[in-house]
């Protein structure tokens, strides 16, 4: 029916034991942390960051659990994730035991969770600056790459002439890894920062071009035909038929592009920039300071995750019509 099914937050009491799994996992982890003493030979064995985080997480999980008792929608979502969150916490428990408790792995490469967490306290200011720098680099690269990519994708997908000349070139240039372009980019662009933006934009451009053009080329011919019999011109067919129908494909291209742009970020930040998460990781790796390397990697991972989640939300809003057509 055309009637809207609203996702109302219904107030109704209920209990699902899966909502309590995170609490259980946290208690086990906390007990392990408190009852087993840190190994005598572990460096920085007096740090208690992990313990503090666990306490904090425990409070949050208790609050969330309380909410699930009252709200049906939240209960079903949260309890569904219960096992996953629990497993996730226990994984850290194992990491903690393997590293600082029993020193089963070499300390240089596998620092304790406490030390990784400590990076966020000590390098707080600097990491924030790096995040800001990376973020603006990434966004600029994504925007340039996407705009140019959608444009060339449409040209190649729509016009036979453009396709004839451009498509082979795109096919040749596209798969070349970003870092290969570094020397050329440095010569072509006035500042290293521009060169860095170019490196990110290039990968994005390729992904978006390919998926935009293939999306446009795979529009059913009959859609154009109906549209024409209703009086549409060629240009109207492009904007009202080809592009809307190719939008899911364009979004897929954007998703791929986002992932590859995080890889390109590492290469881009080798170019004379003075801050940035990728740069930070490279630098700390050379210093053989692995707690900092891991801290940087976690930031990138969380960043990427949030970014893609946001993207999916936008897609769901824009492409609701697709839901019944394909599985996602």
């Amino acid at each position: 029916m055309a009637e809207k099914i609203k996702n109302e937050q219904k107030l109704s009491f209920g209990f699902n034991f899966r909502s309590a799994i995170p609490i259980g996992a946290l208690i086990i982890t906390l007990l392990t942390e408190i009852l087993i003493p840190n190994n005598q030979e572990a460096k920085y064995r007096e740090l208690t960051n992990f313990r503090s985080v666990l306490f904090f997480a425990l409070i949050i999980s208790v609050i969330l659990f309380t909410i699930t008792l009252f709200y049906k929608n939240f209960r079903s979502k949260y309890s569904h994730k219960g096992w996953f969150i629990g497993g996730f916490i226990l994984f850290f428990n194992i990491l903690n035991v393997v590293t600082v408790k029993f020193l089963l792995l070499p300390q240089i490469y596998f620092p304790s969770l406490n030390r990784v967490l400590n990076v966020y306290i000590e390098d707080r200011q600097f990491l924030l600056k790096c995040m800001g720098s990376s973020f603006s680099l990434l966004i600029e690269g994504l925007i340039f790459g996407t705009v140019v990519g959608v444009f060339t994708g449409i040209l190649v997908g729509w016009s036979l002439n453009w396709n004839y000349w451009l498509y082979p070139i795109i096919r040749i240039l596209g798969p070349i890894p970003s870092s290969t372009w570094i020397p050329l980019a440095l010569v072509l662009f006035p500042t290293p920062r521009w060169a860095a933006v170019f490196l990110i934009a290039f990968g994005v451009w390729f992904q978006i071009t390919i998926l935009t053009s293939s999306g446009i080329q795979s529009v059913k011919k009959s859609y154009f035909e109906v549209s024409s019999t209703m009086g549409a011109t060629n240009l109207q067919n492009l904007f009202h038929i080809a592009i809307p129908d190719a939008l899911p494909s364009i979004f897929l291209g954007f998703f791929n592009a986002t992932c590859s742009s995080f890889v390109a970020l590492m290469a881009a930040e080798m170019l004379g920039v003075k801050a940035g998460i990728g740069w930070y990781i490279n630098w700390q790796k050379e210093m053989i300071s692995y707690p900092n390397v891991y801290a940087g990697l976690v930031i990138i991972a969380v960043f990427c995750y949030l970014f893609i989640t946001l993207q999916f939300k936008v897609r769901d809003k824009l492409l609701g019509w697709q839901k019944g057509v394909i599985k996602w």
């Binding site: 059913k220 009959s222 109906v226 038929i241 809307p244 129908d245 697709q322």
Partner: peptide, 9 residues
């Protein structure tokens, strides 16, 4: 048309 060609979007 013989088969439905409604625009899905």
């Amino acid at each position: 048309f013989q088969d439905s060609t409604l625009f899905p979007w």
